[in-house]
Design a protein around this nucleic acid. Structure first.
Lengths: 221, 221
DNA sequence: CCAAAAGTGTTGTCCATACACCCATGG
DNA sequence: CCATGGGTGTATGGACAACACTTTTGG
């Protein structure tokens, strides 16, 4: 099992990587993961590993990403690996998990570049699939809130989209769009204490919606 | 490995089920599937099994659906199973595959009803996931053409949406929408010979687009 | 008073819908 | 000539992008 843990740090979308030393890893950085116990559900196993890596239990979002397998994978690894994708609010660096000392958050934009980490096995593709899944799900689900704390402002939510998609969104229009979607967010009737000037923002929490109708499309084309 | 093979028969979305007799199947109908060879890729294995069941090679569409596993599955079965989803044009009934005599296309709308088939293990959920995946992918990909023959009319394509979503679409507006999406379909400059009255329709084949911008949304809410 | 951030109003454009209408074929 | 299905034209409404403007805070 491999875990793609995504979060936002400093306005950048980041993935958690673990520094590995020996085989079966042919490159210094790899996704967190491990073996699945025979007596537990796949989702349960992923949830347990997520907790082991980050201490996170309820926050965020966890879903199965895809299963990777075939002769191209390292023969010393399990023949197939089920990858899971987690979207998490900002966490300490390094995260307080079992791999803490060897763990690091890497901006996903740095993965292909020269000063970015070298990823082992087929992990580059797994990360790419996870990032694309996350970007796509922001369009038609309210999962952007999984990147935020329990209470968040609409600016927090907007910055999730801006970091994940690499675009700038118009704050007034974003506000209208989110508030006009039933169940996306729930107002709490409280305001933030402003930080260095500016009007305090209203606080919200996640709503009960599971899909956005109509979606919040990134206008790429 | 389990295969969810979907096709259109008589304006209804149908799934291929195999009649099973003994254990490990606790109900008479099950998805086609089998074991994965250790020396082949997952996608390759799914493609091979698809060919074995239907004789289909290039037509249609095949993608990984999800991996199911956990203690709730039958202990005599493999502990995990990777499910694949295929969208296929209309095929003979029964299909000319290895399980041909025991295979049957069932309308997915009948699955929950009293006169519908009883599905073994966790196959009801797998079928439901596959159907929902197919319905969703019709929105933002040109995969509806995978349900059609090599050459098809816009009415054929429209009937795919109508069958999968259970709605009626306005033919003029559907036509404009499809033709205004670059790469969705390619006109062939030929016309069908009309069948029992009506103007002959123009013929098209699949285009090169992989996504629809903007999507063709079902207005359910 | 000024800067900064949150929030409101307004307008134009695009797109989807609904539906009237025309075209081409079989009976 | 009529029924049937394919295809075109067009008016209306809703959603979104753009941007001017107001509100509320800190300095």
């Amino acid at each position: 099992m491999d875990l793609v843990l995504l979060t936002l740090r400093g306005g950048r979308l980041c993935v958690l990587l673990i520094r590995r030393d020996g085989p079966p890893f042919d490159a210094p950085w790899a996704l967190p993961g491990g073996f699945v116990d025979g007596d537990e559900d796949l989702d349960t196993s992923a949830s347990r590993r997520l907790w082991a890596e980050t201490g996170v239990t309820m926050a965020g979002h966890l879903e199965q990403l895809r299963t990777y397998g075939g002769p191209h994978r390292d023969p010393r690894m399990p023949w197939v690996s089920v990858a899971y994708l987690a979207l998490l609010p900002n966490l300490p660096s390094p995260p307080p998990g079992s791999d803490g000392p060897r763990a690091r958050w890497w901006p996903v934009a740095d993965l292909g570049s020269a000063d970015g980490p070298m990823l082992a096995l087929d992990h580059p593709r797994i990360v790419a699939d996870g990032v694309e899944r996350a970007r796509a799900k922001l369009e038609y689900t309210p999962l952007a809130a999984a990147f935020c704390e329990d209470q968040f402002t609409l600016a927090d939510l907007r910055r999730v989209y801006e970091a994940a998609w690499g675009v700038a969104l118009d704050p007034p229009n974003f506000r209208r769009k989110v508030l006009s979607t039933p169940g996306f967010v729930v107002p709490l009737g409280q305001r933030t204490s402003p930080r260095g000037g500016g009007r305090p923002a209203e606080l919200y929490r996640r709503g009960s919606a599971t899909a956005l109708h109509p979606p919040l499309l990134r206008r790429s084309v």
